[in-house]
Design a protein around this nucleic acid. Structure first.
Lengths: 190, 190
DNA sequence: TATTAGACTAAAATACGAAAATAGTCGAAT
DNA sequence: ATTCGACTATTTTCGTATTTTAGTCTAATA
């Protein structure tokens, strides 16, 4: 990692801290600069706008979720079990992240385009992961109600259902039994 | 239906029209009164507030969705097919309603409590319907991955996943194949 | 008596301009 | 190549005057 990347990382770490404390709207570029121990205009040397910083930080945080989930499942062989573990892991991780960045709800309004863009990127990357898992399951002949030809759309639909579950489960207290039922429903059916 | 109920219905019909045109925030009590051909204070004789009118109208509209879906499935015997048909029907109907009342998105902000309350009522009624269908399927031994003891939580989880799907499918063009895949996923698994 | 409307009030939304805060630029310094 | 402080152009905030609107009350009417 060269100097350029190092400073960029440092700024991102600082930005994460202040974003987690104040949210997107309430944190100023000077807050970030102060936290990073740099002058404000230095930030503009590395990022073109506050939005870009936020987007970079958010995508990075979401990538961590994917990474954790993918690590958690790499030792599992059965495609069905793999899928269950993946869904459970992402839901749990996401819940934690949303807890940390509890502000995002308030920030959505007024930054819809930015948030949509971030969510879109994450959805696409998750869809790709799911597609690969589905492909693997089909190859090993472990999925009997899914047809090869539906693979792409199925991955897309799965993303939608997982998002729905995340939204729904966020509203209430931790209930790992519900997460368990949900993943079983999605993978095994009724 | 006595006179009292008749007038109430007439007001609701008028309210639906103006709500569909202007949304909750932008329509005034005088708009509704004008559309209904009554004086404003007459509305207060039948409803205690604008919010109450909106809630009544919204619940009524949502009840229609349930009713339509339940009618559509009453001739189906197999619990699994019944479940699939129910999910497809509610998603399709909901999509249409949201198309008509396209404003609600903008009205959520600033009326969160009211909207939450309405959504809650609808979720509960849908959960009840789903619970009954699950019970029936268990009785007939058609569900093999669901346990009796999980029935209540499963119904709750299903509501969440259906909401997620609705949200997700609203964003894109009609794709009945995706709805089909989704229902099959939920009922048959992968 | 049940229902309606018009006048009225209190509260909320809106409009607007001045003042303050903030995003983003630029040239000089290192 | 990197950083900063001074500067500008936008936004946001804020106070206030004005208008709109929800909701009440009383009298009229059918």
């Amino acid at each position: 990692m060269n100097r350029d990347e190092e400073v960029k990382q440092a700024i991102m770490v600082a930005a994460k801290r202040v974003f987690a404390k104040w949210g997107l709207n309430k944190t100023t570029m000077e807050d970030i600069a102060g936290e990073a121990g740099k002058g404000k205009s230095t930030l503009y040397y590395y990022f073109k706008s506050k939005e870009e910083i936020f987007e970079t930080v958010a995508i990075d945080e979401l990538n961590r979720i994917s990474l954790k989930a993918c690590t958690a499942i790499e030792t599992i062989d059965s495609p069905k079990d793999k899928m269950k573990a993946y869904i459970t892991a992402t839901i749990t991780e996401m819940k934690q992240i949303v807890g940390i960045y509890s502000f995002i709800k308030g920030d959505i309004k007024g930054n819809k385009a930015l948030i949509d863009n971030i969510r879109n990127q994450y959805d696409q990357s998750e869809e790709k992961i799911l597609r690969e898992m589905l492909r693997q399951g089909l190859k090993l002949n472990e999925f009997n109600s899914l047809k090869e030809i539906e693979l792409n759309k199925a991955a897309n639909v799965l993303v939608g259902m997982i998002r729905g579950l995340q939204l729904y489960l966020f509203l209430e207290n931790e209930d790992s039994e519900k997460i368990d039922i949900a993943t079983r429903l999605l993978v095994d059916g009724l």
